[in-house]
Design a binder for these strands. Structure first.
Lengths: 360, 360
DNA sequence: CTTTTTTGTGAGACCGGTCTCAAGTGCGAG
DNA sequence: CTCGCACTTGAGACCGGTCTCACAAAAAAG
């Protein structure tokens, strides 16, 4: 606590004095409410200009109760998925004169909790969250201001939510692989799971991950592939160890002949690992990833992707939230945006040389 | 103005009443200032817990004058360059318990002005800006709170600034091209210029762009290339028309045999255009770009890049700004971070088939 | 055992706006 | 000519904290 530099700002009272009217009157014209005569209005405006008056939004928020900003908690803005979504949010917010306070959770619940606490203390009017874990959401249930969920749904939480049809997308993508003859198909995600996956969907942290896995497994079942659960790989976030794990996966004799990646960051890592292992796409291995990241179209071969309307995702949650802030109180909406698969060149038929079938 | 839903929040007075002490005392323990006896402190804390008291940061900011948040105005968070820098900023900010209010200028001064006005009204403690234009900075000069510049310096503005050694980087990269024998080298940037470039450095909007062009021209001069100014192409932002312009450039008989791109977004567009024109890198054309974006290492061939320490760039400005917020008042610092060139496979020698020299 | 210092607590002003309420003004209707 | 009503304006409370100041009680000093 140093001495507050305290830039002596011009207040309503100052303007009032200058314009020789009461504080209340000056406040009325400056705040744009109530009724004021033309002459007085002009006088106040002139005084304000002369004094270079700037309203203090904080003080305004104090009494009105609305701060004019919303909090946005995402996993990681560095991830192009989130940065694009945030772009969508902030574009919409700006149109409504609302500010965006950004917070990174780093996909950790504790950071998420703390961020939400701070944001709430700052009296944000609303909150957009990408919940890091669906298991630990007590802090979300406690929130009293409008809340909207981005990309990840929470069945227990009946609030405005915008997601994409993850399950169906995974289903179609996986089908594309099975129809090309693949039987050893892996699903690789950065998400972490406490313990191994043994069909315990309930233990999967986020709805997005769960839905995708469900779609993946369904396609495998359709194709008569058994034990597909064993081919789900968690924790492939960006780290050297994760990269090493991927390499081991690829060097294994019974390595998958096709892979579905959960996001573009994981996919890029995979792409590099595949090359490092001397394998070729799509001859040795086929690859499909979620998110039409910019790089996927310029690789050799270009990668087949599940294109999610990311910008619209952000735009939509923001619209939903802001509508709510304006007083709309129809029941919470759950919007599921469609995805499309952009077929490029990364899917080939099952390589014959590694046709040692491990199932069926 | 609907009726304010007015969630009746628990205030210091409520806690005081519950704990049977004065408002002042309750405020002391809740606010963590002044001296209070152990017993009373315990009582207040208990009352606070019982009532589930949450401090109102806004009210606190009112009196203290500091809001605990900083404003960040960037060109476009969607651009991986900015999103990474913002990540750096927000990581540092969080460590100091400071929030980040994000605003997109879309590289337009008017939007930048308006964003700054709003941020200031919200009483941000400090501001980090990536000025869209160095010509129009009156609004920046007026700012009274601590201000720091990110990625773009403003000679007229003596404030904390963190940039990279753009000029030297461009010089070295261009040299790499001239030494490979290239003479028709183009510099392509998304920045816009009012009118054509005729050596009028002063009319270039941002320091970053100017420095790079200066470095580019210097290398050309060293190599005895004349009229290099004519090979500077502005306005190649992401738009269909910009893409068409690039294609025209590449289809031209006297097309450049090497190109230096100012950022990864432009470079990606260029890469696609080059492919669409049936040209090959590096046989027909060499390419170097600023920013080691993720895609540059996975293309065929991988692209030689000027690697900027983007995360550190953000981290550093944030540190500078926060240090200032804490009362440090040594003279403004201008940090210039070094860049390194990552040589990959996109630079080849001048193609012989198109060796119709247009100069020297 | 007094005097001085330290410590704990309460009362109330204050930050910069909003907003309620009452009083003052002017004008048309009766 | 008077009454009523719509329109302006001013006074002051209020939002939820912080902080200054005065005062009482306890501790240290003389």
């Amino acid at each position: 606590m140093k001495r507050p530099p305290k830039a002596p700002s011009v207040t309503v009272s100052d303007v009032a004095r200058e314009a020789k009217v009461s504080k209340a009157t000056a406040a009325r014209v400056l705040g744009g409410y109530g009724r004021v005569s033309k002459t007085v209005r002009a006088a106040v405006l002139e005084a304000a200009k002369a004094l270079d008056y700037r309203p203090n939004e904080l003080a305004r928020s104090m009494t009105t109760g609305r701060s004019g900003s919303i909090g946005v908690v995402v996993g990681d803005i560095e991830n192009p998925f989130f940065s694009l979504a945030v772009r969508g949010i902030s574009d919409v917010a700006r149109l409504s004169g609302i500010n965006v306070i950004l917070a990174n959770s780093g996909e950790e619940v504790e950071a998420e909790k703390s961020a939400i606490r701070v944001l709430l203390a700052k009296q944000v009017d609303g909150l957009i969250v990408t919940p890091a874990q669906s298991g630990d959401i007590a802090h979300l249930k406690e929130i009293t201001c409008p809340l909207a969920l981005l990309d990840r749904a929470l069945p227990e939480l009946d609030v405005d939510t915008v997601t994409v049809d993850d399950r169906n997308a995974a289903l179609r993508a996986t089908r594309m692989l099975t129809q090309a003859g693949h039987r050893r198909i892996a699903y690789v995600t950065a998400a972490v799971l406490s313990g191994d996956f043994r069909g315990a969907e309930s233990r999967i942290n986020t709805s997005t991950v769960r839905e995708r896995i469900l779609g993946f497994l369904e396609a495998c079942r359709e194709a008569g592939i058994e034990g597909a659960e064993r081919n789900i790989h968690f924790g492939s976030g960006r780290s050297d160890s994760a990269h090493a794990v991927l390499q081991r996966l690829l060097r294994n004799a019974g390595r998958p002949t096709a892979i579905l990646a959960s996001d573009s960051v994981v996919a890029l890592d995979l792409f590099k690992a595949i090359r490092e292992c001397g394998l070729s796409i799509p001859n040795d291995i086929s690859l499909i990833t979620f998110h039409d990241a910019d790089w996927t179209s310029v690789t050799t071969p270009p990668i087949t992707v599940i294109d999610q309307p990311v910008y619209v995702l952000g735009k939509s949650v923001a619209e939903l939230l802001i509508r709510r802030l304006k007083g709309d109180d129809r029941p919470p909406e759950r919007i599921v945006l469609p995805t499309t698969i952009i077929e490029r060149m990364s899917v080939g038929s099952r390589p014959s040389q590694s046709g040692n079938r491990s199932d069926s």
